[in-house]
Amino acid sequence: METAYESTKKRKQAAQKDIAEPVKKYRIKSLRKREELSGFLFISPWLIGFVALTLGPLLFSLYVSFTNYNITSKMDFVGTQNYHNMFFNDGLFWTSLWNTLYFVAFSVPLTTAGAILLAVLLNQKIPGIKVFRTIYYLPAVLSGVAVYLLWMQLLSPSTGLVNTALSWFGIRGPAWLFDPEWTKPALIVMKMWSVGGGMLLYLASLQGVSKAMYEAADIDGASAFRKFFHITLPMITPVIFFDIVTSLIGGFQIFQEAYVMTENGDGGPVNSLLFYNLHMWNKAFEVFDMGYASAMAWFLFVIVLGLTVINLKFGKHWVHYGGGDEK
C-alpha cells in the first residue's frame, strides 16, 4: 500500500517534472523559433513575391475556371461548364491539343538526340574545338522574335536558304510555313537549330565521365561503339533525364513561334499551327473568355503534371546516378 506521504511525493515529483519539462522545451523551442523566424525573414522577399504574385493568381485562376469571368463585367459560378465546353463543344481545343502533342512528340526526342550528338562531336580533342563550340552554341544565345523572323526568311519557298540548299541536291523543297502539312515540321526543324543550350549541359557531363572506365574498357578490347552505349550514355543519363523533363514541359508551352510566324497570330493555314497556348491566349485576350482560358490552363497543367510524374517514375529504371545510393 502506498502511504499518503509517498503518494504526495510522487505527485510532487510528477508535478515538478511537468513544470521542469516545459521550461526546457520552451528554451529549445524559443531558440528554434527565433532561428526559424530569421530564416523566414531572410526568405520573405521570395515568400511575399511567391504568395502575392504566383500562388494568389494561381488559386484565383483555379476558381475562375469554374466561372464565366470576363475581367470587366461578370464572374458567376458556372460549375464545370467551361470544362464541358472544352471537351464537347470546341473543336479547336482538340485541334490545338493535337498540334501541341505532335510538336512535343517530335521536337523533344529530336532535340535531345541532336544535343547529345553535337556534344559528343564537340567533345573531341582536335585543334580549334573551342571555336566550334562557340559557333554551335551561338544560336542558343540569340532569342525570340528576331530568330523567328530570320527563319521565316530561311524557310521562304522559292528564295529561302533552306530550299535553295535542298535544290542543290535536286530536291524541291516544300512551301514550309504555307503548306499545312509542313508547318509543324518547319517549326521542329527550326527548334533543332538551337540545340546549343542542351549541348552545353551534355558537354559538361561528358567531361565528367571518368577516364578510368574508358581505359578499363580499352583493356577489355571494347569497340568505340560499345564504349559509347555502355559507358558514355549511362554516365550522362542524369543530364538526359533533366533535359527531357524540362524540354517536355517547355514543349507544351510553345506559343511565341506560332504567334509570330503566322498571319495575325491566328494559327496558320488550316489551323495547323494553332497550339494549345495560342488558342488559350486567343480565348483570353481576343474574346475575354477568361473562365474558359483558365480552364484550359488547368487542363494543360494536369497533362504536364501527369507526364512529369510518369517521367519521374520511369526515370528510376534508366537513370544512373554515379556515387551509389541505388535501390
Binding site: 473543336g91 503548306d179 499545312p180 488550316v270 489551323n271 486567343n282 480565348k283 481576343e286 474574346v287
Partner: peptide, 19 residues
C-alpha cells in the same frame, strides 16, 4: 460570338488547298 470567324477560316483554307 466574337470569334465566329475562327470557325470559318480553316474551312475556307482547306477548300483553297483542295482538301
Amino acid at each position: 460570338a466574337p470569334d465566329y470567324q475562327n470557325k470559318i477560316n480553316p474551312l475556307i483554307d482547306a477548300v483553297l488547298l483542295g482538301k
